[in-house]
Design a binder for these strands. Structure first.
Lengths: 230, 230
DNA sequence: TTATTTATGATAGTAATACTATTCTTTAAA
DNA sequence: TTTAAAGAATAGTATTACTATCATAAATAA
């Protein structure tokens, strides 16, 4: 007997419970809050995103949204954490058969620097839009005065875990390399930053003509492997 | 006959006039707006910074501030542009006798990654606090939906000029290097990012024990010269 | 089955933010 | 001496970021 057809296979990313008041994965309204947040933040930017506009888009009331999230900062941190958790999963999945650490690190760099396709395993989340949000809003999650408190509450755990994974891979390539953590966080941030610059402030990059993500990958590979294979 | 004693020697950074409504350099109130903005943004962060609080700190009214700057975003861009203009000047001054391009680039990296001392040439601006603002608020100047319009108005010219200077230096070290602009913007951004991480999310760096800026410089030198001397 | 908890909806209200406008006074240049 | 410009004082508006209350529908437990 196979699985009954009503059982939908879904990837569940485990989230830090102190990010929300009510778990958005557990109800239709909650899932809509995530779905429409991603859409609105992508469309109008985080600064002009408000719970009132979100509520209107969903067809609920402001108070309804506040029952799930204390404020828009926590909602941003939530969707960003979700993305890092999902990406960690993707990296594990897409590199599980790669044994050579150099090939593996190259694959990871490519994943980090490439706009992902929408993952059908996650119904209410469009990962390709989420990737765009990460590029232009990602750093706003931690560039705040409360960063230390947020860190104590483990809001950045998925991000740190990803950096750890990448840092570990760097050490697998060269156990003598002195800056694995810094290089890992640099790879992740520069992948996003160069993408933003390429599309918005092109003279800050060397990719203005093609506007091709492959060039960012080439730049990062050159940067990383020059350093660790030196 | 020497310069009369009432002539104070001051460094003037030429600013883009469309950033302000009234030139803040031309009056006491204007200078106070700059001075107290820097203090308040540093103390409480850009998000909780308002023109009302600023006016109260100065001892003027909200309307008074609005006569100089249309909104707080333009004020942020103003002080950030000012910083990049001042830094370009500093770099020119501090490297004017260095002829070897590698030494010169190393010096520039050190300047970019080091907390500057307050420059007495600029009465109302505390550069060491400004440097801190750049680390935690700098990217908010361009991570917005209006980045393209702002760019058309040349709001980011001083930043782009600095990147150009650094990119030129990279090419002087190795005229065959393929990514001078991207590497230049990477150096500048990573210098700030690693500083922020070191002090706020230390596990994302390898400098958590010492919390010493010299280690950031060492990391950047390793990264940059591995790439361009390869 | 009934009672009760829980989620949502509808509405109202408040303090703060991000402005705009007007009027008056002081200061400085013509 | 007149005029213009800069600043201070005050008022007012729409939006934001919430909190609180009450009613209702659906799920659940006694």
């Amino acid at each position: 007997m196979g699985a009954p057809t009503f059982m939908k296979l879904e990837v569940q990313i485990k989230m830090n419970a102190s990010l929300y008041l009510r778990d958005p994965e557990q109800s239709e309204l909650g899932k809509n809050i995530i779905k429409f947040s991603i859409e609105l933040i992508h469309k109008h930017g985080f600064e002009s995103f408000t719970f009132k506009k979100l509520a209107e888009a969903i067809g609920t009331t402001e108070a309804g949204v506040y029952r799930y999230f204390e404020n828009k900062h926590k909602l941003l941190v939530y969707i960003i954490s979700w993305y890092w958790g999902w990406l960690e999963f993707q990296i594990g999945y897409q590199t599980k058969n790669v044994t050579n650490p150099v090939s593996k690190l190259k694959k990871v760099i490519a994943i980090l620097a490439t706009t992902v396709e929408d993952d059908i395993m996650t119904g209410h989340v469009d990962e390709s839009i989420l990737h765009q949000i990460l590029i232009s809003e990602g750093s706003k999650a931690y560039l705040t005065k409360q960063v230390s408190q947020d860190n104590k509450q483990e809001y950045f755990k998925p991000y740190k875990e990803l950096c750890n994974t990448v840092g570990g891979l760097i050490l697998e390539c060269n156990s003598k390399y002195k800056y694995p953590h810094s290089l890992a966080s640099t790879i992740i941030e520069v992948a996003h930053l160069q993408n933003f610059f390429m599309n918005n402030l092109p003279s800050l990059t060397d990719f203005s003509k093609s506007k091709n993500e492959d060039q960012i990958i080439a730049f990062l590979n050159d940067l990383v492997f020059s350093s660790i294979e030196k």
